[in-house]
Nucleic acid binder design. Structure first.
Lengths: 357, 357
DNA sequence: GTGAAAGCGCTAACAT
DNA sequence: ATGTTAGCGCTTTCAC
C-alpha cells in the first residue's frame, strides 16, 4: 500500500507541457505560440503550421484553470439532480445525460454534475457554482410550478435552460413536452377501447409536468362529457412502489376503474404489478398506460402503452440551447414544445391472447 | 428574444465578490483576509472572526479557477461513461452517480461527467482531462480484462479507482464484487430446486465482471458434477433486447433448459419476456434469475431472483477511496471485495416442495 | 509578423 | 499579527 502511495506522489508525475515549453523549443515568444494556436492570422502561416505541429507532438493541452481565469469563462455547464440517496433509480437519467454529453463534447464543453434534494442543500449548491464561477450556465430538470431555481438564476442574470416550463417565468428558455395533449391522446385511445372509468395516478402537482398531464386527463374526459371523479385520481411519487400502492387501492374500489393512467412509466409498471397480483389480466381485465416511452415499458409484460418523449434528443437540444445562450448566439429557438407520441401496446389492447394456465 | 439576450449580457451581471473587495472594506491586506478565511492561527482571532463574518455577509466565494491555478489542484473527479448514443439506459447509472455525488459533496469535491464509447474518442477524453489538469483523478467503471485506461493512468501516474478489477493491473485500487461466488450461490440455489439444465446468457468477456460471473456458473456446475455444455451459454449484450433474443433461441432448444441465468438483471428481464411470450410460466415452467438487484427486477412479474450488489454504497466507497488517494491519506483500504447477496424471489420458486438434502 | 508586459484572483514565502 | 511580493499559465493590449 505504501508502495502505491509513493508511486502516486505528485512529484514523480510528469509535468504537463505549457505554452512556455513549446515557445522555448521553437525559440519563439509565448505570445506568438498562443496566437498561432488560436489561429490568428497575424502570424506567418509557416510559423503557425510549425507551432501547431510542434505543440501537437509535445502533447500540449491548454491548462484549463489558467485559460478560465484569464477568459472568465469555464466552458462547463452544470446539472444538479434534484434528488439524492440510495434507492434513486430513474431510467430517464442515463438517456438524458447521454444526450447532454454528446452535445457538450461536440461543442467542447464539459458537464459538471451534482445531486441535491430540493431545499437548502440545493440552494447552497447553486449559490456555490454561480459565485465561484464554476460553470457558465445550468440545465434544470423537473421544473416546479413555483421554482426557486428559476427566480434565483434570473435575478443573478445567470444563463440556464430547462427541461419543462415553470410558472415562475413562463418565458424562460426551455424545452417543453406537451404532456397535456399527450395524455389527451391517451385518454381518447382508452375511450375508443370502450373505457369509461379511467383512473389517474399522478404525483406532486408542484412538478410542472405532473400538472400538465393531469390537465390532459381532465380535458380528455371533459371532451367526452364524462364527469371528473376525484375518487379516481391518486397521488403517487413517480416510483414503481408508488404506482403499486395506489393501484392496489384503486383495484379494491367498487366500481373499480377499467383503465389506469400512470403519470410516468414507472408508476404504470407498479400498477401492472398490483393488477397482476390481484389476479387481473392486464389489457383484458384492466387497461394500464404510462408516459415516457422508456425501454422498461417496452419490455414489460404485457408491453406498456405509453406516450413517448425523446429524452435523448431533448437532452441534446436543451444543452445546445444553453450553449447558444452562453455564447450569445441567437442560433436556436428559445423555447420549443415537443409533441409526444402515443405508442399503443398490449397493456391497453384486449385482443391479446392470454397463455392458458 | 432580443430582450432575453440583452438581459443575459455579461456586462449587466453582478461581478462576484473577490478577496480584494473584502479586504478593502475592512481595510486589511488581501493576505490577511486569505489567511483568516483559511483558518490559519497566525491571525488575531478578533480579525479572523470579523473577516469571516464580513466575507459571509458580502457573499464571498473563492473563485475556483484562481485557486485551482495557484494550488494546482482541481478538487474535481472525473467519470467517463464508456458508452454513448440515444438508447443508452442503465438502471445502475443513477444509483451509482447518487453514491458518488453524496460522497464528493461531503468532501467538497465536484464531479465532472462525460460519455465516450471505448476506443479513440475515449482515449482523447482521458488525454484531455489529464493533460489539461481538468480533474484530480478518475473513477473507472465497466473495467475490461485488458484495459487501456488502467495502463494509461498508471503510466501517467494519475490517481484513479475503479469499480471492478482488471488483468491489466491486478493491484490497482478498486472495489470489486465477487461475481464468481455470487453466481455460484445462485447455481446452488437452482440445483437445490432440482434444476440440471441451467443456461447462462452472458456478454462480451472483455468485461471483467462478465468473466467472473461466468466462472461462478462453471464452478457451480462443476462442483455438482454436471458437465459444462457450451450450447447452454449465450452471449448477450447486457440489454433487455439481448436477453430476449438469446432466451428465445434457448427456449426452442430441445431439450430446453429448465433454468436461465442472466449475467445482469436486464438480460434476465428480457429472458422473462421471451419466456412469457412463448407461453411459459416463469418460476414454474422455467426458472430465470439475474444479477444486480435493481429495482426493476424487484417489481418484475414474477419478481426476479437476483444477486444483489449495493451500487450506491459502492459509488460512495470508490469515490472515498479516490479522494483519499488524491490527498495521500492512507485512510481507506486500497481494494475491497464485496460479497454480493442472493435474493430469492418468485422467478425461481415453483410450488413443488424442495427436496431436502 | 513578433515580442514585452500586464493582469485574471488566489496563495504562500518572506518580510516586518 | 499583518503586509509586500511573486507567481500559477494563459490571453491580450501595446510596442516595435
Amino acid at each position: 500500500m505504501g508502495g502505491i502511495l509513493r508511486i502516486l506522489n505528485k512529484d514523480t508525475r510528469a509535468l504537463p507541457v505549457r505554452i512556455r515549453d513549446v515557445a522555448k523549443k521553437l525559440d519563439l515568444s509565448v505570445t506568438t505560440v498562443s496566437r498561432a494556436l488560436a489561429g490568428y492570422d497575424d502570424v506567418a502561416s509557416a510559423t503557425r503550421d510549425l507551432v501547431i505541429e510542434t505543440a501537437d507532438e509535445m502533447g500540449y493541452v491548454p491548462q484549463h484553470a489558467a485559460r478560465q481565469l484569464r477568459r472568465q469563462r469555464t466552458e462547463t455547464i452544470g446539472l444538479i439532480f434534484p434528488t439524492t440517496g440510495s434507492r434513486f433509480s430513474d431510467p430517464f437519467f442515463s438517456e438524458f445525460i447521454a444526450g447532454i454529453g454528446d452535445e457538450t463534447s461536440r461543442r467542447s464543453y464539459d458537464l459538471l454534475v451534482s445531486v441535491a434534494p430540493p431545499g437548502e442543500a440545493e440552494e447552497r449548491a447553486y449559490h456555490l457554482w454561480t459565485n465561484s464561477r464554476r460553470v457558465d450556465g445550468f440545465i434544470l430538470i423537473r421544473t416546479r410550478v413555483d421554482d426557486w431555481r428559476i427566480s434565483y438564476l434570473t435575478k443573478e442574470n445567470f444563463p440556464f435552460t430547462s427541461f419543462g416550463r415553470s410558472k415562475t417565468l413562463e418565458t424562460s428558455p426551455h424545452i417543453g413536452v406537451d404532456g397535456c395533449s399527450g395524455v389527451k391522446d391517451l385518454v381518447k385511445h382508452l375511450l375508443d377501447q370502450g373505457h369509461r372509468r379511467i383512473a389517474f395516478i399522478g404525483a406532486s402537482e408542484e412538478l410542472t409536468f405532473v400538472g400538465d398531464r393531469l390537465e390532459g386527463y381532465q380535458i380528455g374526459l371533459e371532451e367526452a362529457h364524462i364527469a371528473y371523479d376525484p375518487d379516481l385520481v391518486f397521488e403517487g411519487d413517480l416510483t414503481r412502489a408508488g404506482g403499486y400502492e395506489a393501484a392496489k387501492i384503486l383495484i379494491e374500489r367498487s366500481p373499480s376503474p377499467t383503465a389506469i393512467i400512470g403519470v410516468n412509466d414507472l408508476t404504470a409498471l407498479g400498477a401492472i404489478r398490483a393488477a397482476q397480483e390481484g389476479g387481473l389480466i392486464v389489457g383484458k381485465d384492466l387497461a394500464i398506460a404510462g408516459f415516457d416511452g422508456t425501454v422498461a415499458g417496452e419490455h414489460a409484460h404485457p408491453a406498456l402503452t405509453t406516450v413517448y418523449q425523446p429524452v435523448y434528443e431533448i437532452g441534446r437540444q436543451v444543452s445546445a440551447m444553453l450553449i447558444d445562450l452562453i455564447e450569445n448566439q441567437a442560433g436556436s429557438e428559445l423555447d420549443s414544445l415537443i409533441r409526444p407520441r402515443l405508442i399503443v401496446r398490449d397493456s391497453t389492447l384486449n385482443s391479446k391472447p392470454v397463455p392458458a394456465d
